[in-house]
Amino acid sequence: MNVRSIITKVLKPLNIPVVFLSYKGEDETYIRFFFYNQAPAFSAEDQEKQTGHYVQIDVFTKSGTEYARLEKGVKDLLVEAGFVFRNQNDDYEPETEIYHKILRFFYAQNTEEE
């Protein structure tokens, strides 16, 4: 299974839209994600055996309560699925009054699984 499908499936229990790259819906709360780096994580005999996927998860919401719930939910679900938490930071977009949580993870996938 590709990593985009894994992320979408793993975050489904949060019950909000989860999209790759761009969100076009009307919901005020949603998750967008993208890969900021994908590179060999392990090679043997000149063959890539594992691909490292560095992914950024962006949580957008106007609700402070949802902001906290989704921060914890995203971290818990992805770590449980084998992703390694790297870092996070907070942002607020005053022109739209949207809270924006940025979470970054690493995921190593065997090339036979891709």
Rank of each mutant, 00 (worst) to 15 (best):
S5I: 04
K9G: 05
V10K: 05
K12Y: 13
L14Y: 03
N15F: 12
V18W: 04
V18D: 01
F20D: 11
F20I: 12
Y23H: 02
G25P: 02
G25V: 15
E28P: 08
I31D: 10
Y36W: 03
S43T: 14
S43W: 06
E45M: 07
E45T: 11
D46K: 08
Q47D: 07
K49N: 10
V55K: 01
Q56W: 02
Q56E: 08
D58F: 10
D58I: 07
V59F: 13
F60K: 04
T61W: 09
S63P: 00
S63H: 02
G64C: 03
T65A: 13
T65K: 09
E66L: 13
A68V: 07
R69M: 11
L70I: 02
K72P: 06
K72C: 11
V74E: 05
K75Q: 07
L77F: 02
L78G: 05
G82L: 01
G82I: 00
F83L: 02
V84D: 01
V84L: 04
V84Q: 03
F85I: 11
R86H: 11
N87E: 10
N89V: 11
D90I: 13
Y92T: 12
E93G: 15
E93D: 13
P94V: 08
P94A: 08
E95D: 13
E97V: 14
I98Y: 13
H100L: 03
I102C: 11
I102G: 10
R104A: 04
R104P: 01
R104S: 05
F105G: 01
F105D: 00
F106R: 07
A108F: 08
T111A: 10
E113V: 15
E113K: 05
